[in-house]
Amino acid sequence: MSVDIAVIDYGMGNLRSVSKAIEHVAPAASVVVTSDPEVIAEAGRVVFPGQGAARDCMHEIDARGLRQVIVDAARSKPFLGICMGMQVLFEHSEEGDTACLGILPGTVRHFPHEAMRDDRGNKLKVPHMGWNNVHQAAPHPLWVGIEEGARFYFVHSYFVQPTAPDVIAGFSHYPFPFTCAVATGSIFAVQFHPEKSQNDGLTLLGNFVTWNPGERDSACDMSGAACA
């Protein structure tokens, strides 16, 4: 029997928080944490989390033979990337000069040391750790029920720079604006941790487990038009 939601396990970090939060918002769904390509291929939805270093992540993905099934899942079914699971969707990461999956055009960069000052001149720490405001760049079914500017929990030292601005679904400031959510087709990916962002995080996960990215959604993602 195929599972409703597969959480991809490639040995990078703690996946229990992710699976517990999804079980919490979808108590009737079958949720599995898996590194089995067949289970991922047959799942209705896929969550792609991840922590740690980009080079290790890519190594583990290939060591487990997961590259193709991740690429296929991202193009064919509701797919949620979280943190490192967002970053490695892009072409290249500065972290360890790592070639990534290349599903989305763009690169991953480190917060530049010289820019890390707030408007009062105080040093800003890296990693960017804690609760920051997320601004919704475009309407999307996964933002439904979440206020513009709501705070989500972040912990990261690298951020994505998409080549195509039309995939940007959300941004945050530290201290400059950076992309913290991208959406295109059946892909939604976030730099923050919805599984650790209390009620708003659970709302986003709840939206994901019922999201049906049809043609209409894709069309309005692309144009930035209201999806209501």
Partner: peptide
């Protein structure tokens, strides 16, 4: 971890990488 969805830090008695792993796996 099954019902509180904010970051949880655990300390005390962490002596080896295996201890870190057990705590992370627990949530």
């Amino acid at each position: 971890a099954a019902e509180v969805f904010i970051p949880l830090t655990v300390g005390g008695g962490v002596r080896e990488v295996g201890d870190v792993q057990r705590l992370l796996n627990a949530g």
